[in-house]
């Protein structure tokens, strides 16, 4: 396997190089324009690289800077007037920890629910001879293009008595149809013989799912868990709509209120005069602390999501 891939790679590389030399031999002028093109391309991509990273670096720099330099507009890539006082302030704030804990709780619960619903539905609708399958798929896909809208959803959740409960955060978006379709096409591409053999051995459809299919689907399950977990970690709007009790807020709402000026630095320990001043600094610290877990799982997400997207799009 490995050998085969490398050979294919070398072949591809040779082809690419071949493409270039083909032009080079033909005309020196073209080759010069080729170099210009390559140079421009490289500069453009380096610029993209820098512009993408810059806002993140800027936030980190601000989080370690003292307010004087931030307000003078002097902080860009590096911290000015190094200061960790704000980190100490936020990390000592019990509201922050409470909200952070809520985010962890919501992420775990919501991801679990989502995985159970998505996996079972995807497995069933991947069975090509299941009667009613096309209706089930239609029911799911239609919701991608038409939805009830903000107000009816709000009215529904309120009348279900879910306001100010965890359920308002974890249930309304439990199934992502996008993830569902990726999983469905993964299950469809599994060799049928495996499942048939297991059925002949006397396993029921449950048995096939739990003992044969799922153990072979670790990669896709991991991908989906990461997709859902990241989405849940980042979500704020459900909580913003349905939660009034500050003890239930996720950390994204903590940050949102800070940005919107509802929670000022005052409630996190600042004094009245410097409230406005240290706002940028304190926001940056909160952003950094919220992003850290995402950055920690990012390498794994990165490893899996491309194959996840490919799984959904490569179909014979």
């Amino acid at each position: 396997m490995v050998k085969g891939t490398t050979m294919k790679d070398t072949l591809l590389k040779r082809n690419r190089a071949g493409r270039d030399t083909g032009v080079l031999v033909k005309d020196m002028k073209v080759s010069r324009s080729m170099w210009v093109f390559r140079g421009v391309n490289l500069v453009f991509l380096l610029a993209v690289l820098f512009l993408t990273v810059y806002p993140f670096l800027n936030i980190v720099a601000q989080s370690f800077s003292s307010e004087g330099f931030i307000n003078a507009g002097q902080v860009n890539l590096f911290p000015m007037g190094f200061n960790v006082e704000t980190y100490r302030l936020i990390l000592a704030d019990s509201t922050f920890w409470n909200n952070y804990g809520n985010t962890v709780l919501y992420t775990v619960v919501a991801t679990t629910i989502s995985m159970v619903l998505t996996t079972s539905f995807a497995y069933a609708i991947a069975k090509k001879d299941l009667k009613g399958r096309s209706v089930f798929i239609g029911i799911a896909v239609f919701t991608m293009f038409f939805n009830g809208g903000l107000i009816p959803n709000y009215v529904l959740i309120s009348s279900l008595g879910m306001r100010d409960t965890l359920w308002a955060v974890v249930l309304p978006n439990a199934i992502s149809v996008f993830n569902l379709l990726i999983m469905k096409s993964f299950f469809e591409n599994m060799p049928r013989e495996l499942e048939e053999a297991a059925a002949i051995d006397g396993l029921t459809q449950y048995g096939v799912l739990f003992r044969v299919v799922l153990p072979l689907s670790k990669a896709i399950v991991a991908t989906m868990v990461l997709f859902y977990a990241v989405a849940n970690w980042n979500s704020w709007f459900q909580a913003f709509l349905y939660l009034d009790n500050p003890d239930l807020f996720p950390v994204t709402i903590y940050l949102r209120n800070m940005i919107a000026g509802v929670t000022t630095a005052g409630s996190a320990g600042g004094t009245a005069e410097n409230v406005g001043q240290i706002a940028a600094n304190i926001q940056s610290v909160t952003i950094v602390l919220t992003v850290i877990p995402i950055l920690c799982v990012y390498p794994f997400v990165q490893k899996y999501f491309f194959s996840g997207v490919m799984l959904g799009s490569v179909k014979e």
């Binding site: 497995y123 069975k127 919701t143 009830g148 009816p152 959803n153 529904l156 309304p172």
Partner: peptide, 29 residues
């Protein structure tokens, strides 16, 4: 033959009915 598969479909269908299709109907307001 497939009642086990239909049980798997049940909860997700309830989810779609309650959280996706009920709000669509709720547009009558």
């Amino acid at each position: 033959r497939d009642w086990r598969l239909y049980t798997l479909v049940l909860l997700p269908l309830i989810y779609f009915a309650v959280f996706r299709y009920l709000p669509m109907a709720g547009n009558v307001i």
